[in-house]
Design a protein around this nucleic acid. Structure first.
Lengths: 264, 264
DNA sequence: CGACAGGTTGATTTTCATCAATAGTTGTGG
DNA sequence: CCACAACTATTGATGAAAATCAACCTGTCG
């Protein structure tokens, strides 16, 4: 795994407690260089040889700040860059013809963003910041070129895309096969794991999504999300105060199963 | 778009009518070379220069026959190859811990298969033939190497992955936001479009999935699928006889909307 | 302050799943 | 080729999960 030193998210491990809402990171100025940013995370894991580092650094990689509620890109925008979340978090949103929207993804610090634009040179969904955030900009053309020179970079990009394919397939399973309780439990455990992978607490985190965002992502209404969380709390599985979530009993969450039917 | 001459699916445009169920294609022997197979489709669209063709052909690309019900690969299998469906069709299936399975995708002739293995060198889902089918085998290692030499090939592979990312996101929308009626309508229109793109009829096709497969893919039960199709038939939108589907009124299908609620 | 967005909880309705019975299809082996 | 078994599809009756509608509460911010 990526050591904390290479993990941009670990640079400023903000763990906001309830009611101390403000993000403490300093959003990078939009012209700042970004040599120690998520680009490393994005490219290094399988190890780029030391002598290739200069080329890697040469990849123009500036940072951009995105304020809460702002779009990093919108569906239909021309696709030029990939992004790596440096701090904060964003949701991806896709719209149906008739205007209905659905949250299709959540990106935490250290995760990649923008792959939805590759297929048609236009972004297929919008990326909206859930809190003041900053991202590294990775020009796709340059990255593509670099991938032809450096095998490990090509490998890394492929894996990144492959991971998203698998993650989305897993989410299709969640939406297609699981009950409301199971969906919420799976979601909380997913966030918990992703936090752990990035060196944060797996037990406590501040989810920046609203209940409505969660519901949209999980294919249910905000009321159902709220009720489910309340029920989990009564059962002693979690302790939720608004957006601050404390996972008390992860094992219990994993055992949340399909609605039990009498006599089976 | 890809001209019919380059489209392997067009080589034997089998359009099976109701009750003449058998697929007429001759499944390629599993050792057959596959120079005019879907590999072209997979690689050519944006145009590989003529002088690069030999390299392309050199990519070891054999065919493999898969009988109805057989797996091309299973979740957990080591990932070595991508595949292009040459004839027939397959479903991809993902399993939950507790054994529940869900159909996560459907691949028709000319479409690519196997990208779910890239991220972890193991396939994340299984691919099961819905009818006797044949696929081209594309060794991933060789393809990766070729992508570093030929830019258009790299481009093509990236787009292929990007397309799957977008397709899956769209399916998440279907599962998360649409009513049962809308899901079935969207599914039929999707198949219809994909058929049209590949030179088949957009109005009539033989869906090899069972009602249960469809239900699994669409996040509903087989009974609901059946009822919905019956209702569409009564409304004159389609004419379905078992797995043979005739789309009578595509525009009407597109207008299938959310459950209307009185007084809004 | 007061308007507003977000969150919780309750009452009611709706959609869809489940259970069940039957009929149609397909493939197999005698 | 027919008969049988096994799978697949349709349709109806009933029930449960989740959506909708609604009221109220909280904290935030101009």
């Amino acid at each position: 795994m990526v050591g904390p030193m290479l993990n941009p998210a670990a640079v400023a491990p903000v763990r906001v407690r309830r009611h101390s809402a403000g993000s403490t990171h300093q959003a990078a100025r939009s012209t700042a260089r970004c040599s120690s940013c998520a680009m490393r995370h994005l490219c290094m894991p399988q190890g780029v040889a030391a002598n290739e580092l200069p080329q890697l650094e040469a990849l123009i990689c500036t940072a951009r700040a995105v304020r809460r509620g702002e779009s990093l890109y919108r569906a239909g925008d021309s696709f030029d860059n990939l992004y790596a979340v440096r701090s904060g978090s964003l949701k991806t949103v896709m719209a149906h013809r008739d205007g209905r929207e659905q949250v299709t993804g959540l990106r935490l610090a250290g995760e990649a963003l923008g792959l939805d634009g590759i297929s048609s040179d236009q972004h297929a969904c919008s990326a909206v910041a859930l809190e003041d955030s900053s991202v590294c900009i990775i020009p796709y053309a340059a990255l593509k070129h670099l991938c032809r020179e450096i095998g490990s970079m090509q490998e890394r990009l492929h894996k990144l895309m492959g991971e998203q394919i698998v993650r989305e397939a897993a989410q299709m399973m969640v939406l297609g096969s699981l009950s409301a309780d199971e969906r919420v439990a799976a979601f909380l455990l997913d966030i918990s794991e992703r936090n752990a992978q990035r060196g944060y607490s797996s037990a406590e985190f501040n989810l920046r999504m609203t209940r409505e965002d969660m519901g949209s992502y999980l294919g249910m209404t905000l009321e159902t999300v709220s009720r489910t969380l309340s029920r989990f709390q009564k059962r002693g599985l979690i302790d939720a105060q608004g957006r601050f979530i404390h996972i008390v009993d992860p094992e219990g969450l994993r055992q949340v199963g399909p609605p039990e039917r009498p006599g089976r």
